[in-house]
C-alpha cells in the first residue's frame, strides 16, 4: 500500500533546529532602493517613455502627408527652440532624458528580477499554474529584453542609418521608404513582432505603473486595465501603419 521510498526511513529530530536566518541584517534600503522604491522608479521612467512613444507615433504618421511634411517635421525636431537656443538643444535634452529613463528602467528591472530569483531558490515540482496573470504579465522581463534588442536595431537602421539602404546621409523619408521596402520584408516582420511585444509590455506596464504609484483602487482597476489594453492596441496599430503602408506601396 505504501511506497516507502528513501524519504520515509526513521527521522532524527533535526539537531540544533535553527532555520537559517540572516544573522547580519540585510543592507538598509533607502526610499528608492527598496523594492517599492525601485518599482516607483520603473513606473516613472516607464511613463516618460510612454510620453515619448505618443510623440513618436504622431510624428511617424506625418509620412501619410507626404515626403515634404515628414522631412520638415524631422528638421523641426532639430531646430526646435531656435534661435533662443542652439540647434539640436531641445532634441539633445530629450535624448538625455530618454537614455536616463531607459537606463533606470532596466536597472530596477534587473535588480528586482535578481531579487525575485533569490527569493525562491527551490522551484515547485508541480508546474505552477498561473491563476491570474495573462500572457502580457508573464512576458514583461523577456519582452523587455526583446524590446532592447529591437531598440538597438531600430537606432542603427533609422536613426544612424548604418543598417539602412539609404545610409546615414539619406533623408528621413527615404530611409523610411527604403528601409521597409518589400524586399526587406524580414525587417518589417522583425518590427511587427517587436511592436507587438511593446504593446504587450504596455498592456501590463501602464496599469501596473498606476498601481505601483498607489493611484489605483478597486473601482478604477478594471477600467485602468481596459484603458491600458486599448491604448496599447491603438499605439501598436499607429506604429505598424507606416511600415505596412510602405510595404504594400501606399507610401513610396
Amino acid at each position: 500500500m505504501i511506497d516507502r521510498g528513501e524519504a520515509t526511513d526513521s527521522v532524527r529530530p533535526p539537531a540544533a533546529h535553527s532555520p537559517k536566518k540572516p544573522t547580519k541584517p540585510a543592507a538598509k534600503t533607502g526610499r528608492f532602493t527598496s523594492t517599492n522604491g525601485k518599482k516607483a522608479v520603473m513606473a516613472v521612467t516607464g511613463a516618460i517613455m510612454v510620453l515619448f512613444l505618443i510623440g513618436h507615433v504622431l510624428g511617424n504618421l506625418k509620412v501619410f502627408s507626404g515626403a515634404q511634411s515628414f522631412n520638415d517635421y524631422a528638421e523641426f525636431l532639430r531646430t526646435a527652440g531656435e534661435p533662443a537656443v542652439p540647434r539640436r538643444t531641445v532634441l539633445t535634452l530629450v535624448e538625455i532624458v530618454l537614455v536616463l529613463a531607459v537606463g533606470l528602467h532596466m536597472w530596477s528591472a534587473i535588480s528586482l528580477a535578481r531579487r525575485a530569483a533569490k527569493a525562491r531558490p527551490v522551484k515547485y515540482a508541480a508546474k505552477r499554474k498561473n491563476q491570474a496573470g495573462g500572457y502580457a504579465t508573464r512576458t514583461m522581463r523577456w519582452g523587455g529584453v526583446i524590446i532592447v534588442l529591437f531598440l538597438i536595431w531600430h537606432l542603427l537602421d533609422l536613426t544612424f542609418g548604418v543598417a539602412n539602404p539609404a545610409g546615414s546621409a539619406g533623408l528621413p523619408y527615404d530611409r523610411m521608404v527604403q528601409g521597409f521596402a518589400p524586399e526587406r520584408w524580414w525587417v518589417t516582420l522583425f518590427y511587427a513582432v517587436s511592436l507587438v511585444m511593446v504593446g504587450l509590455h504596455l498592456r501590463h506596464g501602464l496599469w501596473s505603473a498606476v498601481q505601483t504609484l498607489g493611484l489605483a483602487s478597486g473601482r478604477t482597476r478594471k477600467g485602468l486595465q481596459l484603458a491600458a489594453a486599448a491604448f496599447s492596441l491603438v499605439l501598436v496599430i499607429g506604429f505598424l501603419a507606416v511600415p505596412f503602408a510602405v510595404m504594400i506601396g501606399v507610401v513610396k
Binding site: P22, P25, A26, T29, S34, T35, N36, K38, K39, L112, R115, A116, K118, A119, R120, A132, G133, T137, R138, M140, H204, W207, S208, Q211, T212
Partner: peptide, 12 residues
Amino acid sequence: DAEGFGGCTNTG
C-alpha cells in the same frame, strides 16, 4: 525587504 522577499510586479 530585509527578510529577502521579492518585489511586487502586480501579477495578481
